[in-house]
Amino acid sequence: MISLRDVRFEYARGGFSLNVAELAVPSGARAAAIGPSGSGKTTLLNLISGIERPRSGEVSTAGVRVDRLSPAARRSFRITKIGFVFQEFLLLEYLDVLDNILYPYRLHRELRLDASVRSRAHRLASDLGLKSLLDRLPAELSQGERQRVAIARALVTSPTLILADEPTGTLDPATKQQALDLLFEQCEARSTTLLMVTHDHGLLEQFGQIIDVEALGPTEA
């Protein structure tokens, strides 16, 4: 599912580089990426999703050599194959819950917003306990509810991979476990691969694969 080999990456402005000798995450796996701040966890997600391009090496995601794609093709790949869940949720304050869930469909012409998509969004909202909140604005939701909207938005395009960047970082323990359970449940139901960045070592036993980013290869700061 995810495969990185001999990857060397550094930001154009310098100061940070990430080297990955070899990394493989099988399809349908539930993986956690750990490491101290600044170790390159987010950069790893960016490489896998094609937001960043490595200087050398191979990055293969869902059977596609992402590093060889043009910027336009990487964007198209990203929005159709990958779902993102961010730490700050990053919902749009001016869109209601339903529109936030359907947001990816407003951003790329390869995604067509039709009746079946709307029906899928309603189903997802129902599964995630958001059915009665569809016309609410994010400001009217609790943290846990916002996180559930963010999960629904990541899943609505039926991606093959979910990349979650510390999605439970701002939640209280009870809500955190609830959100994780929902995320796991939805990924398992759809056989979707999950790669989640976390600082919380207490959660690691729930993952089938742990990736220590610091151990992937020599990192220079």
Binding site: I51, A72, F77, R78, I79, F84, F86, E88, Y103, L107
Partner: peptide
């Protein structure tokens, strides 16, 4: 800025 960054991270082009 955060909203615009989210757009591009999700796969939205600068043109869009």
């Amino acid at each position: 800025a955060e909203e615009l960054r989210t757009m591009t991270r999700l796969g939205c082009s600068r043109w869009k």
